[in-house]
Write a protein that binds this DNA or RNA. Structure first.
Lengths: 131, 131, 131, 131
DNA sequence: GTGGTCTAGACCACG
DNA sequence: GTGGTCTAGACCACC
């Protein structure tokens, strides 16, 4: 199972699931039209409650990443369903801004910040090839 | 008053205060050794609970940005007190990673992501000159 | 085959079938006394479960639109079998009311709402001529 | 309490709450900036579970009708937050179409359908004056 | 006090 | 089998 959660993390479990499904889509571990595990199945595998998984799936549905079919369960959407919108750009900016401000305040230069981003992008790229 | 909060925001008020104090330090609106408004004062000005301001100040203290004196109140520390640590790098990475993953998944290229960051850096620079 | 279903729709499949059979009757694609496809046939054509088709047919029977013969299968009834009753008026009102309320709340005027209805009626009329 | 639910109804409780809150906004029983009852309060008043109310409130938030403040609870938004969008028009059409088709099939003329709508609009108008 | 999250277990609609 | 709804009761963060 490619999906793991950290019960000790600050991040809510349902958000961890959401983030990892998005990562799975990006890394092509989850292909368009592919099914996610059923709510009950994933809950059992992760040792958590059904409703927590359901909440994650509903959020992903609302954000356009997946569809939820009556019987077939959750299906990965095509990219056009979750293409970045104006609204998302604003949201992204709002999320990045405080990180840049704090890191700058703590003495991290723009160049160094980009170096960190570069590491993350490289990391993703490697995973994409490996996966 | 340079500090404003948005009650409608998703972000907790005490975190909004924290973020803006850090921004104030970065932009040199708050200089080393300078005092922050008293807990009572700020709470009254913003029309919020004292506990909330207190929580923000305690977090800032814990993160090394300020000291809290019984008499003089909250005082801005010198940069060496909050210089980025290994721990902070890891934390920063963990915060940036899901943003990069989601934005990539939504079709935002690395170049475009950096363009957004660049805007934010420019924005801060302008404020520095202006302030 | 004039009947198509959308597996991605929120609407249950058996209700989609029901709605389209009613539309077929209205547009005279299905004439009085004409047979509907057999449960097996339709299920195979649509690639869905027999139970689902069966459920739709039973609902249509219960609502007076069709009769189900052991040998001849499902047969379209004459209009007097499904003429609007007092009960149906109430049901229709209950269905329309929340739509009018929400649309009014969202700033859609009565005139505009009627304009939307007019479009739908026109659409049906065109289909009637075309079909 | 202006809000009542029907436990025997086909409509899910959380949707009944949603619909009635929207009605309350339309009829100006709930004014801009006004607070809805707290999740716990309303649940207790209606004799239902907290989560059911919470689900309704979250849906209303998502649809732009209300904001959910950390401490102040749910607050009614200004109309511009839930103005009809293109997307909503399509959704409305899709909801109205099968009602028009079935009613036409059952022998209800366009004129009579509008008469029914007229009744509903009048009903709302009277309530607006009365409330 | 508020809402948010999570658990545990039930019943139902759909296919 | 699937997801959707509802209940009951717990703990937490925020203010």
């Amino acid at each position: 199972m490619w999906l793991t959660i950290d019960l000790r993390s600050e991040t809510a479990i349902y958000l961890q699931i959401r983030d990892q499904v998005i990562q799975g889509i990006l890394l092509n571990e989850l292909k368009i039209g592919e099914s996610l595990p059923s709510v009950r199945q994933l809950a059992a595998d992760l040792g958590i409650n059904m409703h927590t998984v359901s909440k994650a799936y509903n959020l992903l549905k609302q954000e356009g990443f997946i569809q939820i079919h009556r019987q077939k369960g959750a299906i990965v959407n095509a990219p056009n369903s979750y293409q970045a919108s104006e609204e998302y750009y604003e949201q992204l900016k709002k999320a990045v801004k405080p990180l840049i401000i704090e890191s700058s305040c703590r003495g991290i230069s723009k160049g160094y910040f980009y170096k960190i981003c570069e590491q993350i992008y490289r990391n993703i790229g490697l995973l994409e090839k490996g996966g």
